[in-house]
């Protein structure tokens, strides 16, 4: 989805090298160390290669001046080979020192560094807050066991707090990746994996599915919203409530449209009879930033288009086009917009 401004919140550009969370910061340090070693190694080796060849070319040019017959060719060549004799006597020492010794020291150092970084990335909090993320083709179900509610395609968490994501999948293997916060972790059917996340800034982070999971792998994205503690508590409090019962006309009609349509087979709106499980929980749809797992910003126009035919935006996704009349759609949108 385009990380356009959504209300007052701006989505951060995702970047491995500009970390916004503890895990990503640790990894970014490792990245810079490795990058500088890599640059140094490449510079030394390529310089040596160029020097070896350039000096040889210069010598060959001198030879040409001395012996204008030119480079040895054909049968004369074999008689003159090997024209320049043996490799230098120190060849073995060079190979053993520069090819084995020095790299071995560097690599063992990097190995120890990498292993200790690896250890530091583990979940460290005593009783971390747990959020369950369940992968579906092609969206994310996000459960807050403490609050007892379920949302979709966005993970909301308090800043400066280590959160443990517990990951699994109901169909194929997915992988959750929020570059600014931490590395990725796979969602594997039949297993539960863990990923610690800790954000240092109250912003919105871009995330994606990183394991190929079928047709719409590309548009299986998510956002992570980090909030200050008070805002987070208010958000969680709101999420744990069922949907408001609409009183006035349009929204009430919209609810009827919802309940009378195929929507209910796949979606849940807590507090109503809609209790399908195949698609995202819509109880607080209007509070979310995106539609279709990051496919579109959550605006009224986009939502209407998505309902009528989501296949144009995200071809192959599991939501069929809805046959709704204009007024029906309008009232449905009014209702959905009340689901703050």
């Amino acid at each position: 989805m385009p990380p356009e401004p959504t209300g007052a919140t701006t989505v951060q550009l995702a970047s491995v090298v500009r970390p916004q969370g503890t895990g990503a910061a640790l990894i970014a340090d490792l990245w810079w160390v490795m990058l500088w070693f890599a640059v140094a190694v490449c510079a030394v080796v390529i310089t040596m290669l160029i020097v070896a060849i350039a000096r040889g070319r210069a010598r060959a040019a001198e030879d040409q001046v001395a012996a204008p017959a030119g480079l040895p060719r054909t049968s004369r060549a074999s008689a003159q080979f090997p024209a320049t004799g043996q490799p230098p006597t120190w060849a073995n020492s060079l190979v053993l020192s520069a090819g084995v010794g020095v790299p071995a020291v560097i690599l063992i150092g990097l190995l120890v560094y990498s292993l200790s970084a690896h250890r530091a990335l583990a979940v460290t909090a005593e009783r971390p807050m747990t959020i369950e993320v369940i992968g579906h083709q092609w969206w994310w179900e996000v459960r807050y066991p403490d609050g007892g509610f379920t949302t979709a395609n966005e993970v909301v968490l308090p800043v400066d707090t280590q959160v443990r994501l517990e990951l699994t999948s109901v169909d194929v293997i997915h992988s959750l990746w929020v570059p600014s916060l931490n590395g990725k972790m796979d969602l594997i059917p039949g297993q539960v994996t863990q990923l610690p996340l800790e954000a240092s800034e109250p912003t919105v982070f871009w995330g994606a599915c990183a394991e190929f999971c079928g047709t719409q792998h590309a548009k299986m994205n998510l956002v992570v919203r980090a909030m200050r503690r008070a805002a987070f508590d208010a958000w969680a409090e709101n999420q744990s409530r069922p949907a408001l019962q609409p009183e006035d006309g349009a929204a009430a009609e919209g609810l009827e449209v919802l309940l009378g349509s195929a929507c209910v087979y796949c979606h849940t709106v807590r507090g109503t009879n809609a209790s399908g499980r195949a698609g995202p929980d819509l109880t607080h749809l209007a509070s979310r930033l995106t539609l279709g797992a990051g496919a579109l910003p959550n605006t009224r126009g986009n939502l209407g288009g998505w309902i009528v035919n989501s296949q144009t935006t995200k071809p192959g996704n599991r939501m069929p086009p809805m046959q709704l009349s204009g007024p029906e759609l309008q009232s449905l949108l009014v209702y959905l917009e009340t689901l703050e």
Binding site: I108, L111, V112, L115, S116, H118, R119
Partner: peptide, 12 residues
Amino acid sequence: LVQSLPLFVGVG
């Protein structure tokens, strides 16, 4: 011997 390093670094 280098392979056993992960045991000593205490990765667990």
